[in-house]
């Protein structure tokens, strides 16, 4: 055993370059399929989309260079402004999922609590349900005449409305579902975050006489800030790119469709329903710029409030 090791060490200088060459070879070989796939289907398309955004497409798929025309149209298009505003609303409202899931995770983390995995499974059900199905279920719950929500409201003397087809409530109705679908997901993330907090901190705090709430705000929350930050970045991205729920909950014949489009819905509508791929690409580029800008701001601000232990 020992001799083999000594021999290995002695043999090393002579074969070192050969070994390293071989390591290069294997390295490139092993990343090749992924790099090729991501290159063809993801990296190159980004450049191509940017290029498309300077072109105009006919219905037959021919395209011609139009310079900044699409962007000029975009700036003047009232639909775009409206959609951007709706998108920000959705992303901002979606962040509500964070305090709620922290609360649920903290409750589930209560020492000595039973049925934890039972609760977790129930909270997790919406996460595993296909958004297309979620959208249909909630459309039905929100139904103005026969929906369960309005029935329950009528029991306490409130007259409901057609939440989804009423343009003034449609977007908020969808946002509630958005939070509902992600609650279980972030609860799991925060439970993992909570379990990473060392127990002796709480014991020390308890000895110092800090109560449950004080412990939560002085220990739990500060130590959870990296997870909060990560979840915030993720949820804003999901919010900015939300499509499935809106697409299926509104439907084109709904009176809410016109005023409640988000930027991704508008993108889909232009690029794939109206065949204006150049204009659609310009919308996508704007969405990317906004996403990057917001993420950059989030990363910049994190220094002020995120504690890395």
């Amino acid at each position: 055993m020992e001799r083999a090791a000594v021999e290995g060490a002695a043999a090393r200088p002579a074969t070192r370059t050969r070994l390293r060459d071989r390591e290069w070879f294997w390295g490139y070989l092993m990343i090749a399929p992924l790099t090729l796939g991501l290159g063809v289907f993801y990296l190159w398309p980004v450049l191509q989309s940017v290029y498309y955004s300077f072109t105009e497409w006919t219905l037959f798929g021919d395209s011609s260079w139009v310079g900044l025309d699409n962007y000029a149209t975009l700036l003047r298009d009232p639909e775009v402004g409206k959609a951007l505003w709706n998108t920000f609303l959705v992303a901002a409202f979606g962040l509500l999922v964070i305090p709620v899931s922290i609360a649920v995770a903290a409750l589930l983390n209560t020492r000595g609590l039973r049925l934890v995995s039972f609760y977790r499974t129930l909270y997790f059900l919406p996460v595993v349900t296909m958004p297309a199905a979620v959208a249909l279920i909630w459309r039905w719950l929100y139904n103005g005449e026969y929906g369960l929500i309005n029935y329950l409201l009528s029991l306490v003397g409130v007259t409901g409305r057609s939440w989804i087809s009423d343009p003034s409530t449609a977007l908020y109705a969808v946002m509630v579902v958005f939070v509902w679908t992600y609650l279980g997901y972030f609860t799991v993330i925060f439970m993992a975050g909570l379990q990473g907090i060392p127990g002796h901190l709480y014991e020390a705090a308890a000895i110092d006489g800090a109560g449950r709430f004080r412990q939560f705000f002085r220990i739990t929350l500060p130590l959870l800030t990296p997870t909060v930050f990560f979840s915030g970045v993720l949820m804003v991205m999901y919010g900015l790119q939300m499509f499935d729920l809106l697409y299926l909950m509104f439907g084109k014949n709904s009176p809410a469709w016109a005023d409640n489009k988000t930027i991704v819905l508008l993108f889909y509508n232009k690029a794939f329903e109206e065949g204006a791929k150049g204009y659609g690409a310009a919308i996508a580029v704007v969405l990317m710029a906004i996403t990057l800008a917001i993420t950059a701001v989030q990363f910049r601000l994190q220094r002020r409030w995120v504690h890395y232990a």
């Binding site: 498309y52 991205m237 690029a271 794939f272 993420t295």
Partner: peptide, 29 residues
Amino acid sequence: LRFPGRNVIFVLLLSVLMVPDQLFLIPQY
């Protein structure tokens, strides 16, 4: 494994995560 350009390639591939899906969609189609 160590090979030249490893980190550059990795970061480049990872940059895909920052891009909204809609940017890939038309060219993929």
